[in-house]
């Protein structure tokens, strides 16, 4: 469609005969929506613009102006000053390990509860609600002390364990509700063919879970990649810092911050999640949108 046609169409929708007040109503509501979109997105665009702007220009600068020249110097400094590569590696290790555990443990629990079934299965499912309702703060002191006793402070495990524990409940619920839609006949057929509970799990349940796995992994990756509180409490060693802790170290002493390099680092660290969001866009948006209605 040409731009002229777009203009014509929007004009006609505004000026549609007999909808005078509705037209005004529509312009007004579109203006509000536009304003909100701007408020949600402009700060992020501004981060990107700042990251691409020469440092001197930022200090002087008009926040709405486009960069006079686009520079990648800030990114160079971001990698040189901090230990950005190392932070990314640590976060990648923690995220991969935690995601793998959440998916595996979540599927196992849901399989036992929903597919195999046992007398107290509803009680066990209810037990997992605790992890959704209770704030993580209540576990910080005990975990810190336990880790100290077992020499686990400053380890990947110290972050992975609570992240898995607190993500597991939602994963169990998602897998469990999905498994309740898998027809019983499928399992009966497998049993007739002589498949035991383990083969059934690997040959029927796991392959059918792919979509739920994608949802669980995406949601948890955001949570894990961005985790601040566990990492900040259990990791003190510079070499073990994950991305959020690393970003914090760009805030120099006494507020002396190299802003353009800092925002370049922010851009680098948000890129993996942004790519995932764009690739899985439809699935995610409709997942959130439908989440509470299906509930």
């Amino acid at each position: 469609m040409t731009s002229e046609a777009i203009v014509n169409r929007s004009l006609s929708s505004i000026l549609r005969p007999g909808t005078g007040s509705l037209g005004l109503h529509r312009i007004f509501s579109q203006a509000i929506i536009l304003l909100i979109v701007l408020v949600q997105v402009y700060p992020l665009v501004w981060i990107l613009l700042t990251a691409l702007r020469p440092a001197q220009e930022f200090a002087a600068g008009n926040p709405f102006a486009l960069p006079s020249v686009i520079t990648l110097e800030n990114f160079q400094r971001a990698f040189a000053q901090g230990n950005l590569g190392h932070y990314l590696l640590n976060s990648a290790i923690v995220t991969l390990a935690a995601d793998a555990l959440i998916v595996a443990l979540g599927m196992m629990a849901a399989y036992a509860i929903q597919v195999l079934g046992f007398k107290y299965s509803r009680f066990v499912l209810g037990l997992f609600i605790v992890g959704i309702v209770v704030p993580a703060h209540v576990t910080l002191v005990p975990l810190f002390l336990n880790y100290r006793n077992f020499g686990l402070l400053n380890s990947y495990w110290s972050i992975i364990v609570p992240l898995v524990g607190f993500s597991l409940p939602m994963a169990v619920y998602l897998f469990q509700s999905f498994y309740s839609y898998i027809p019983r006949e499928l399992y009966d057929a497998a049993t007739v063919d002589g498949a035991g509970p383990y083969r059934t799990f690997f040959s029927i349940t796991v392959p059918m879970s792919v979509n739920t796995v994608v949802t669980v992994v995406f949601v948890n990756t955001i949570f894990i990649w961005n985790d601040f509180i566990f990492a900040n409490t259990f990791v003190l060693d510079k070499d073990m810092k994950t991305v959020p802790l690393g970003l914090q170290s760009y805030m120099g002493a006494m507020g002396s911050i190299d802003w353009t390099a800092t925002f370049a680092a922010v851009c680098v660290t948000v890129t993996p999640l942004l790519l995932a969001l764009l690739v899985l866009n439809r699935a995610i948006i409709y997942g959130i949108q439908g989440g509470a209605t299906k509930g």
Binding site: Q40, L44, W225, F228, V266, T269, V270, L277, I285
Partner: peptide, 12 residues
């Protein structure tokens, strides 16, 4: 677009 801030870390 409105969901974008949700993927940015609290530190950022």
């Amino acid at each position: 677009l409105v969901v974008l801030p949700a993927i940015v870390s609290t530190v950022a």
